[in-house]
């Protein structure tokens, strides 16, 4: 049974969204690099559109263990939640990567919470702010909050905002100071927001390419 959400954006809109995500994640990497002080290697993110149920399924399949998520809410023409999700076991690693290995274990443990939160904050903001800018929109993005748990919990948080049915599911992989951190960015929104997004994407395409349709001819 085909996921109905998947068909919501056409090929070009998806391509545009992917490009936006690319740009956003690149920005995030740059910001992360400034925090860390060393080059952050970034893989090409994969972008998929799916329903919330499907997203929970996928996450459950891929990351069976306990997860950590940095959570932010965005409001504006599109409203929803953004989550940076990665396995809990990676958390200390990430903190070390971000803070430096010199700190004693206890400090790391103490700082884990805050460090993770801020790191997640940097990544999410990098993405969201870039996307918002390119879509020529100003979103109000909340302060970050750290969650521990599993997929279903993350995707079933109490409103506000209202529970959305659409998930833009982005798989990313950073290498920070030789620490391999791969995770997901999930942007949850409701259908109206998706429609709005669709419109914004169209505008973006138009602005970028000069017209709304793809150019098949390449002048010789």
């Amino acid at each position: 049974m085909t996921d109905p959400v998947q068909t919501e954006l056409d090929e070009f809109e998806l391509d545009a969204l992917t490009e936006l995500v690319n740009l956003g994640v690149s920005r995030a990497a740059t910001n992360l690099r400034d925090m860390v002080g060393q080059q952050v290697l970034l893989s090409v993110p994969t972008v998929a559109l799916m329903s919330r149920e499907r997203a929970i399924e996928v996450l459950g399949e891929r990351e069976p263990k306990r997860l950590i998520a940095v959570h932010q809410v965005f409001e504006g023409d599109i409203t929803g939640r953004a989550l940076l999700i990665f396995p809990e076991i990676k958390s200390l690693e990430l903190v070390r990567a971000v803070t430096g290995s010199d700190l004693p274990l206890e400090d790391i443990i103490e700082l884990e919470q805050e460090a993770l939160t801020e790191t997640g904050n940097v990544v999410l903001n990098g993405c969201l702010a870039t996307i918002a800018n390119l879509l020529h929109r100003r979103l109000k993005i909340s302060l970050p909050e750290l969650l521990r748990g599993e997929g279903p919990e993350f995707f079933n948080l109490a409103p506000p905002p209202e529970r959305g049915d659409v998930v833009i599911f982005i798989y990313i992989n950073f290498v920070v100071k030789k620490h391999d951190v791969s995770g997901y960015i999930a942007m949850l929104m409701d259908m109206p927001s998706l429609s709005a997004l669709k419109g914004l994407l169209r505008d973006f395409i138009y602005r970028a390419t000069g017209d709304g349709a793809p150019d098949g001819d390449i002048p010789a």
Binding site: D15, A16, V44, I205, A208, T209, I218
Partner: peptide
């Protein structure tokens, strides 16, 4: 560029 959109954007700029 792997993104068609991006290629189109560059194309536009070139034009």
């Amino acid at each position: 560029d792997d993104s068609k959109l991006a290629r189109m954007a560059v194309a536009k700029a070139l034009r």
